[in-house]
Computed example of a mutant assay.
Amino acid sequence: MKSPAILLAGLLCLGAAMPALATSLAPKPLQEMVAEADQIVRATVVAVEMVDGRGRPLTDPDAPTGPGVSNEIRLVLQVQDVLRSPGKVPGTIRVPLWTMWHDSLGRARGAYLHSEGIFLLKSERHAPVYPMDFQRPLEERARIQALMGAP
């Protein structure tokens, strides 16, 4: 039989390794996200869609995303105002969410549908500038605009 000290040490090592097995990200400062954003828009989420790895629409509210799953959730935004963009932004854009989040279509609809905010995006794909906190409250508009002008 192994000594209790060895078992305790093993459990502590396992506990320390567990966060590495979960999908998690450190928060990113707003200043960095604004600096990295190609597009900054004020918009409303008018739909939440999901497609499989071949781009086929999925409608099952329990359809998952996460590591090992090729499904992708997309927010459909109705753009009201463009704060920054290198070119013209269409009135409606689709924003793909990070596929590594453990999520479902139904949960995402409940969380995002009809929400309004300022969205920090990048590239012609309108991807989030960072997987989390890319949708900011409307009350942060003045702060975001000040950061846009900051060197």
Rank of each mutant, 00 (worst) to 15 (best):
V34H: 03
A108M: 06
V76F: 04
G68K: 15
Q80P: 06
E116T: 13
A47G: 06
D81S: 08
A43I: 12
I144G: 01
M148I: 03
V48I: 12
L138D: 12
Q39T: 12
F119Y: 11
D38Q: 13
T23W: 14
K88N: 08
D81R: 06
R143W: 01
T44Y: 04
Y112N: 04
N71Q: 14
G110K: 13
P67I: 08
G110N: 07
A22G: 14
S24P: 08
G55A: 13
I93Y: 00
A150T: 10
R125P: 07
A47Y: 03
G15M: 14
A43T: 12
A150I: 07
V95N: 04
P61D: 09
P137Q: 11
G110D: 04
G55I: 11
G15Q: 13
V41W: 04
L14W: 06
K122E: 11
Q31N: 13
S123C: 10
A108V: 05
G55F: 12
L14F: 04
L120H: 01
W98P: 11
E140K: 02
M33R: 08
L147G: 04
P151A: 09
D133L: 10
F119H: 03
F119A: 00
G117N: 07
G110R: 12
W101C: 10
A111R: 15
S104P: 06
T23L: 12
D60N: 08
G68A: 09
I93A: 03
R141N: 00
F119C: 01
V45W: 02
L121Y: 05
F119I: 02
K88M: 07
Q80Y: 09
L30A: 07
A37L: 04
A146G: 02
G10D: 08
R141G: 02
Y130E: 08
G117F: 00
A142T: 01
L147S: 03
I6S: 14
M1D: 12
A5T: 14
P67K: 15
M33E: 07
A35C: 04
V69R: 05
G110M: 10
I118F: 01
G117M: 03
S104E: 09
V45K: 02
F134E: 02
Q135S: 10
P67M: 08
